[in-house]
Amino acid sequence: MDIKWGSLGQVFVVSLGVTVAVVVIFSLGVLAASARQVALERGRPAAVPSAAAALCFGACAVIVLYGIYLIVPQFH
């Protein structure tokens, strides 16, 4: 029996790394969006949190596009 422990380990490490990256970036985006709303309500400038949120969600959008690229065989 040939159990591909190497491949299994790779799957584990890659999916852990990718998930942590996505989740951290998205959570920071949510954090920034929350800060933006608080700033807007108190009439303070919200440019910095807005930009941060846009950056984070943009990065997540890119990761989603990469996911679609991986799923669709025609792109390979």
């Binding site: 852990l16 998930t19 942590v20 989740v23 951290v24 959570s27 985006g29 969006a33």
Partner: peptide, 26 residues
């Protein structure tokens, strides 16, 4: 394991943000 780690991080990062934004965002 992956989801446990991810969940822990999500709550760690957004724990003190406002509830509605967090809920809607996720």
């Amino acid at each position: 394991f992956v989801a446990t780690t991810a969940t822990y991080l999500v709550y760690r990062i957004t724990g003190r943000s406002r509830g509605t934004t967090v809920r809607e965002g996720f």
